[in-house]
Design a protein around this nucleic acid. Structure first.
Length: 461
RNA sequence: GGCGGCGUGGCCGAGUGGUUAGGCAACGGUCUGCAAAACCGUCUACCCCAGUUCAAUUCUGGGCGCCGCCUCCA
């Protein structure tokens, strides 16, 4: 059995057959860098990080590209608000993005690409669109003529007639059709601008992803990912531009879209103002819990980041940490380990079924705990099992798990060590009243002690 | 209004035409000085109504409800 993915283009699960055997080319829409990203943005990044790690683990040679939209109306607006240049705003928030994403153990792309560094590619594409009759210049801007591209609507499953029925926006007077969209925007005074055959201006949002993805991955690359809210118009427009400009299709073989993060029963979004910043949640619950929450449901579904989900993800994370702390290091994969790994692979091959994959991970932990309970951490069956766990966590939680396992029980302060020793002494002397009092005292310091056959364990909470 | 998705046990969340998801919570037990952790056991569901079928939670149709997109958005 091979890998199967749900392609938004067909709305079906399809066998994954990459363009070039053994290689996967993949592009994911990154942030518009005008502010701190929220949990929903971060979830998308986690989802595609897991997909990428899985493909790598499965032996594909993956080329991963992600963009920064660093020129845009919102950046310009933000710059005015903060009294900075739009370059400064873009720099500030792309650095902030990098920091959050790194803290979540999300691997850097092979090609982190910035719109402002690829203007010539975009200009070239726009010229091609005009030459081929798919775009027209009006008032210093260039518009894509949607009615010239007969496949327009194929990704989002709508027709031009459908869309006209639902029009809600005041069309720009320069457009021939209300649904035409800008591929090049004429600069207004004071805005960042680049020279072009149509005068000074900047690229439209959609063109950047078309141009940069093909620049690095060519046409007909394998996976294009992003949130489901990008299906229309963003990805629809990307297809139109790319296929119209090159005359080749498909632009992308498999379109993958992740579901939205909900708070309560509403989508978390900037416009609704109900957002939780990714950096705040990471600071509160730690990266591992956040990653687990992000993949606790299938990537295509929406996922709730409310209290209950948080608690459950926390438990999963704690079980993992606690097992890793007590279990021996991984060794040669055992037969039993291989069986778990097969189940993990089967789950992930089925459209990246992370909830089931996570279930497999927890079953390994249970099995490992049972072994340890029976014959202790030296049980010869453990290393081969732990090896399977390591491989799974390598894909699902990335380097975060190891970092936490090592750093988690970090240097207890002298005072805490002292108290723990006092408590151990009290317990030996059967002075349990005193031992319990010290335990309470430690708890107040944020330290939980657990008595195990191997001795007292200190867990910082 | 148009397009798309979803509705599973107290909760989160997979999945299947007849056979165990997994987790959280709860309860009982083992262990423990007591706890905690861990392990064992119990808890058995599939929105409603028709239809197809030997058999539907799973397929088809209708209904109800929820969500996303149609405007910037992961």
């Amino acid at each position: 059995m091979g890998l199967v993915v749900t392609n938004t283009l067909t709305r079906k699960k399809e066998d994954f057959v990459p363009r070039d055997e053994g290689k996967v080319s993949m592009y994911v829409c990154g942030p518009t860098v005008y502010g701190d990203i929220h949990v929903g943005n971060a979830r998308a990044m986690v989802v595609f990080d897991v997909i990428r790690r899985y493909l790598l683990w499965r032996g594909f040679d993956v080329t991963f590209v992600r963009n920064y939209t660093d020129v845009d109306d919102k950046i310009i607006a933000r710059a005015a608000e903060e009294g900075l240049s739009s370059e400064e705003v873009a720099f500030k928030y792309s650095a902030a993005f990098d920091e959050v994403v790194a803290s979540l153990g999300i691997a850097a792309p092979d090609h982190p690409v910035r719109a402002t560094e690829h203007i010539p590619d975009m200009v070239e594409m726009i010229q091609s669109l005009i030459e081929r009759g798919f775009a027209y210049e009006a008032g210093g801007s260039v518009w894509f003529a949607v009615d010239k591209f007969k496949d327009y609507g194929k990704l989002s499953g709508r027709t031009l007639a459908d869309m006209r029925a639902g029009e809600r926006v005041e069309p720009d007077p320069n457009k021939r059709q209300p649904l035409d969209f800008a591929v090049w925007k004429a600069a207004k005074p004071g805005e960042p601008a680049w020279d072009s055959p149509w005068g000074p201006g900047r690229p439209g949002w959609h063109i950047e992803c078309s141009a940069m993805s093909m620049r690095y991955l060519g046409t007909g690359f394998d996976i294009h990912g992003g949130g489901s809210d990008l299906v229309f118009p963003h990805h629809e427009n990307e297809i139109a531009q790319a296929e119209a400009a090159t005359g080749e299709k498909p632009f992308v073989r498999y379109w993958l879209h992740n579901g939205m993060v909900n708070m309560g029963n509403e989508k978390m979004s900037k416009s609704l103002g109900n957002l939780v910043l990714a950096k705040d949640l990471v600071a509160e619950v730690g990266p591992q819990v956040m990653r687990i929450m992000a993949i606790a449901g299938s990537y295509r579904s929406g996922v709730d980041f409310g209290e209950a989900s948080l608690e459950q993800a926390t438990r999963v994370s704690e079980r993992l940490d606690s097992f890793r702390r007590d279990a021996p290091a991984g060794g040669k994969l055992s037969e039993e380990g291989r069986q778990f790994l097969n189940r993990f692979t089967e789950a992930m091959d089925d459209d990246f079924n992370t909830p089931v994959a996570l279930g497999t991970m927890q079953e390994i932990i249970r099995r490992g705990n049972t072994l340890m309970g029976t014959s202790g951490p030296d049980d010869p069956q453990l290393p081969g099992l732990v090896e399977a766990l390591d491989e799974i966590t390598g894909v699902l939680v990335g380097p975060v798990a190891h970092a936490q396992a090592e750093g988690g029980s970090d240097s207890p302060t002298a005072k805490i060590e002292e108290l723990v020793e006092q408590r151990d002494r009290a317990r030996k002397e059967k002075d349990f009243g005193r031992a319990d009092a010290i335990r309470d005292q430690l708890k107040q310091l944020g330290v939980v002690v657990e008595d195990t056959p191997q001795g007292t364990r200190v867990v910082s909470s």
